[in-house]
């Protein structure tokens, strides 16, 4: 475990020193500041725009990180042969994979924290009360990104190119959000075979729509403890399964 921490540290440091992440954060901050000036157009729902941006910008940046960094996380190591250095060190392969995963998770955490703090500052500036539910929503979005990252790592453990993995991740993201519609379709389909097939697809896909509670949060709709418990355990289960599969594939891999 401790060795995973050092791998995570390497991933984290490298991501932070990468200009792309910094420039994305700067872009996000600029958008957030600009939203302050547009706030009057929200007609009575003051602060809605700030809250919306605060809650969605970390996901946007996280998605970009996954598609541009997450897909190359393992691929680059193999392609550029950095893996040789780690493989010759006393570190097991599962520790290596876990470290990679935790490193990017730490990046998500930092990005989210930055936007949370900035958003809360702006809300105070506008004299709008800050609610604990915002933190819950941000927590949910980190979990969503972690699920997506684990899926991406699973794909990248056997996919040929990072571009293909990126496309996979992108499709999975939107398909995961369409999960409730897929379920509805499985109920409505007339053909029995199609019905079963669609139902299987529904169970395989990560149901990311659970993690989109932005609209509930911005409009003070309450979220039950049961839902929170269910969603957290779903995320844990999905991440563990995906990581186990990708580690199993990675263990067999020869570079």
């Amino acid at each position: 475990m401790r060795r995973s921490y050092y791998i995570a540290k390497a991933v984290f440091l490298e991501s932070l020193k990468n200009y792309t992440l910094v420039s994305m954060i700067v872009f996000g901050v600029v958008v957030l500041v600009a939203s302050l000036f547009l706030n009057n157009a929200m007609l009575g729902e003051y602060g809605k725009l700030v809250v919306d941006l605060e809650l969605t910008l970390p996901i946007l940046i996280g998605l970009i990180i996954i598609i541009f960094n997450g897909t190359r996380l393992v691929y680059d190591e193999i392609e550029k042969k950095t893996i040789y250095i780690y493989a010759s060190k006393p570190i097991k392969r599962w520790e290596f994979m876990l470290g990679k995963f935790l490193g990017l998770t730490a990046v998500f955490l930092v990005v989210t924290t930055i936007f949370a703090i900035l958003g809360f500052l702006f809300l105070m500036l506008l004299h709008i009360p800050v609610k604990g539910q915002y933190v819950l929503s941000l927590f949910f979005s980190i979990m969503e990104l972690m699920i997506l990252l684990s899926v991406t790592m699973f794909f990248s453990s056997f996919s040929a190119t990072p571009i293909l993995t990126g496309v996979f991740a992108f499709v999975i993201y939107f398909a995961g959000h369409l999960a409730p519609d897929i379920y509805q379709y499985s109920l409505m389909a007339k053909n029995q075979f199609v019905r079963v097939l669609v139902r299987i697809i529904y169970y395989i896909l990560p149901n990311l729509s659970y993690y989109n509670i932005t609209k509930e949060v911005t409009h003070n709709i309450s979220i039950s403890i049961n839902q929170i418990y269910y969603v957290i355990s779903y995320a844990l289960l999905y991440i563990v399964l995906m990581m186990v599969f990708s580690i199993l594939i990675f263990e067999k891999k020869e570079f």
């Binding site: 969605t56 996901i59 946007l60 979005s141 939107f174 729509s209 993690y211 989109n212 932005t214 609209k215």
Partner: peptide, 22 residues
């Protein structure tokens, strides 16, 4: 019109259409 197509960005897109509608 189906909010799920947009992933997590349905809210922010709603805000954009709001401005556009004005």
């Amino acid at each position: 019109t189906n909010p799920h197509w947009l992933g997590d960005f349905n809210i922010i897109y709603a805000d954009f259409i709001w401005f556009e509608s004005l």
